[in-house]
């Protein structure tokens, strides 16, 4: 079943074109959306969350036209959205915040609504913090609180914009677990700029660069895209796109073969860098 169907979707802000003829079909499971800052990720996520409207092309969400106002309401009833910018009204407790969003999601009966609020707080491990003021929660907890509100009323479509940002490694692992579980019977789109995230829990990933889809496939395919272009050598090659010194003291270089280099197994990161790396050679040196 197709939950998201984008056909030739474009969007501009003024003269700047942020989405350029994006075509994408997504069904059950996790889709990882990868791309550098300014690639149009957040705009695409906002279009998927019905918050932004496309200028051209067709956006079909859960089988309905996202530009039809009545269909929008129907879509929003089955949608959970974690925006990138997260702000909280001052003075709210964690419980009150989620409760407020629950009212916006049309849950009018207080008892059932509060049961639902407790359920999503429990899912995100926030039960013991439910009565604390939001501004006193740590960054990771606020992030989890945002995801908790998105889980209200068990949405079919989950749009998570950078959910792992600001989480410590343990919380990130927990979140992967949660997202994988959620994706068993729903459509989840996760945007991130961390390649290890997509490698870990996204069976399918899309690379967005300068408003266009540059890659659509599984992580192995992305790594394979760099096959034959990743080298290891003792000296820096000025023609390499990227080069950095790894823990074994030698240089890992992406691009054309430097003299005397040996070919190495590419990683997802290599494939990603080749897709989005600028044409100018960039050199990063890490000890």
């Amino acid at each position: 079943m197709t939950d998201i169907g984008l056909t030739e979707v474009s969007k501009s802000y003024g003269r700047r074109r942020v989405l350029n003829r994006v075509t994408l079909d997504v069904g059950t499971g996790v889709l990882g959306l990868l791309g550098p800052n300014g690639a149009g990720k957040t705009t695409l996520m906002r279009v998927l969350a019905t918050v932004a409207q496309a200028d051209a092309g067709r956006v079909e969400l859960l089988g309905r036209d996202a530009r039809d106002p009545l269909a929008q309401v129907a879509i929003r009833r089955r949608l959970g959205y974690v925006p990138q910018e997260t702000g909280f009204p001052r003075g709210f407790t964690a419980f009150e915040y989620v409760d407020y969003v629950a009212i916006l999601k049309e849950m009018t009966d207080r008892r059932t609504r509060h049961d639902e609020v407790r359920r999503v707080l429990e899912t995100m491990g926030l039960t013991t913090h439910a009565r604390r003021r939001v501004w006193r929660l740590s960054g990771g907890m606020k992030r989890r609180l945002m995801i908790a509100q998105a889980l209200l009323s068990d949405p079919r479509l989950l749009i998570l914009d950078e959910p792992t940002a600001g989480l410590d490694p343990e919380q990130r692992l927990r979140l992967r677990d949660t997202i994988s579980t959620l994706a068993e019977n729903r459509c989840v789109v996760v945007s991130t700029h961390q390649t290890e995230d997509v490698a870990a829990f996204c069976p399918r990933l899309v690379v967005l660069h300068e408003g266009s889809i540059r890659f659509d496939g599984n992580p192995q395919q992305l790594a394979a895209a760099a096959a034959g272009r990743v080298w290891r050598s003792e000296q820096r090659d000025p023609g390499a796109r990227l080069a950095w010194r790894t823990s074994d003291g030698r240089l890992r270089q992406v691009g054309s073969p430097p003299p005397g280099a040996t070919l190495v197994e590419p990683s997802i990161e290599d494939g990603y860098l080749l897709l989005v790396g600028s044409s100018e050679p960039v050199v990063k040196a890490t000890a």
Binding site: A49, R76, R77, P89, L104, E106
Partner: peptide, 21 residues
């Protein structure tokens, strides 16, 4: 106000009738 405005994205994705809100 800024406090409410910070929730703008979440509010915009909710099905609650906008005018009523």
């Amino acid at each position: 106000g800024p406090g409410v405005f910070s929730m703008h994205e979440v509010v915009a994705a909710a099905p609650y009738p906008r005018l009523r809100l």
